[in-house]
């Protein structure tokens, strides 16, 4: 096999993969909206490069591909092999335990909610409201606020029925995901008696209450849901 043939093969695979990501919703598993343009860009340029490479005449004698080249090309398509081997890849409670949520004491006074009238209060807002009263006021977060959260169960359960619900926020891709969690405190008789397994996706509706400085959600309904196609918040 020549180097050129090998190269065309790799280009075909990557062009197909990017085209699939572009034409399906699959790219949202990996990439956020801020950098979503890389997928159509990659698909178009890779397809054009592949077509151009196929239709340009090779120059002179072509060199045969050595073992190193073959190995290099296999390496280049490893992401696709890995994804085939673990098709349900995703971020869950293990990743949440490895990554650090925003938080702490410095600069909290300068953190403010987005200046957007359509901004929907979610995990990060509740996290910041627990850290900063100024944030809570600016975001309109207070005890008694009715809300619905969708997320996955993470972390060990701290008491009878109490658990944390988590979502990842991404800026660019899954590598920069930051987990934000909200504590759920179901009243007696609501929820699974034995607790929910980690990574179970739930929709929880209820009212915000304070538990010390922290805002927690006291639900009036909890239902198991399918993991959404786009698991991230932005």
């Amino acid at each position: 096999m020549t180097r050129r043939t090998l190269r065309v093969g790799v280009l075909v695979l990557w062009a197909s993969f990017f085209t699939y990501l572009w034409l399906s919703d699959a790219a949202t598993r990996f990439i956020g909206p801020r950098t979503a343009w890389v997928v159509p860009f990659g698909a178009i340029v890779l397809v054009l490069t592949t077509v151009a490479q196929v239709f340009t005449k090779p120059q002179g004698d072509e060199q045969s591909a050595g073992g190193t080249e073959v190995l290099g090309m296999i390496l280049l398509v490893t992401p696709m092999i890995a994804l085939s081997a673990v098709p349900d890849a995703g971020l869950g409670s293990l990743a949440a335990s490895r990554k650090t949520a925003g938080g702490g004491i410095a600069a909290l006074t300068s953190i403010l909610p987005p200046d957007d009238p359509n901004h929907e209060i979610s995990f990060a807002d509740i996290h910041w409201a627990s850290e900063s009263e100024e944030y809570a006021i600016a975001a309109g977060i207070a005890e008694g606020l009715e809300m619905r959260l969708e997320g996955f169960v993470s972390g060990s359960q701290e008491g009878a029925g109490r658990f944390t619900l988590t979502r990842f926020y991404i800026a660019c891709c899954a590598a920069d995901a930051v987990p934000y969690s909200v504590t759920i405190e179901p009243p007696e008789g609501l929820g699974e008696p034995g607790g929910y397994p980690e990574d179970t996706w739930l929709a929880v509706s209820g009212q915000l209450e304070r538990s010390g400085a922290e805002y927690v959600l006291v639900p009036d309904s909890i239902e198991a849901i399918e993991a959404p196609k786009d698991p991230f918040l932005y």
Binding site: V38, G42, A89, L91, G92, A95, C173
Partner: peptide, 29 residues
């Protein structure tokens, strides 16, 4: 990853691995 199948570590590794590559390759291009 294949042998672990549904194990969380393999799922986490693969999603981050593929995400970085998908994001970086167009810039290489």
């Amino acid at each position: 990853g294949r042998s672990l199948g549904d194990q969380a570590a393999a799922q986490t590794f693969v999603i981050i691995f593929v995400a970085i590559v998908v994001e970086a390759l167009p810039f290489i291009l």
